[in-house]
Amino acid sequence: MKMGYYPGCSISGSSREYGESLLAVLRALDVELAEVEDWNCCGASAAHNLNHTLSLALPARSLALAEQQGFQELLVPCAACFSRLAATRKALMADDAKRRQIADLVELPMKNIPVSINLLQLLQRVLPENLKEKLRAPFDYKVACYYGCLLVRPAEVVEFDREEDPEEMDRIMEKIGAAPLDWAFKTECCGAGFSVPRTDVVGRLCARILDDAVSRGAEAVIVACPMCHSNLDMRRQASESHSGKKYTIPILYVTQAIGLALGLDAKQLGLQRHIVPVRLSAGKSSQILENAPA
């Protein structure tokens, strides 16, 4: 059976390279996805900041549609959407009255709410044991795996990895030949939804993250969340004006790093869409980047 796919709004807009690289890599690994038809926005932090009921109602509609379309599991690559969908399922499983109210509103049964999984959970399952043999250009760089907040917190909602020192992304990076570093900011917040109303906060928080990654010799920061990516990449200037330093370290989605290692085309992985140019110095992957069509 195909796995359900809830792309979320960022992947359909400002973070489309995450979706592009994810689809390219999963295609190469023979994993089929089917997008949930007519999904809607999960409400992100705006909904739970202002109205708790709305923060459940919005994800619930998408979950109800996914159930109706026959999905038992949904891939939710955005960490924020993943957290909202998982939290909603948990809340509705514990509150029968609310579940029935929402089911009436959306006119769908909501009996077997599908389980949401994040991208790292899916990769954990589908990356073959002998992946190293299949790599065309091992991603032999020192990387700082940045998990951010909502992939790993709180454990009771996400049911994934360790809250304080997660390891799953590091393991995936090892599988493609990278050297994940031990660093201090794996799960420190990037400023998330403050990107627009308080860009200064994002600058302060991201500068700390970049400083630590760079000082430990990382050549790239690897992420699995559109918010983390846009704050560290698109908002690079905010970090630089906060610290007065220049940072050139690129931010790659986990799927872009895997894609490069599998020998996929850089453009297909959306690397040209980054604000901070992806220039990786040594290693085989750099050849791929240089040979890529502009």
């Binding site: 709004c9 409400g43 992100a44 705006a46």
Partner: peptide, 22 residues
């Protein structure tokens, strides 16, 4: 207030189109 304005603008976008129109 700007943080609240941002959240409000975000939710208004979803109210009308169902998906965030950035």
């Amino acid at each position: 207030r700007n943080i609240l304005r941002f959240h409000t603008a975000f939710l208004d976008s979803i109210r009308y189109t169902g998906r965030l129109y950035e």
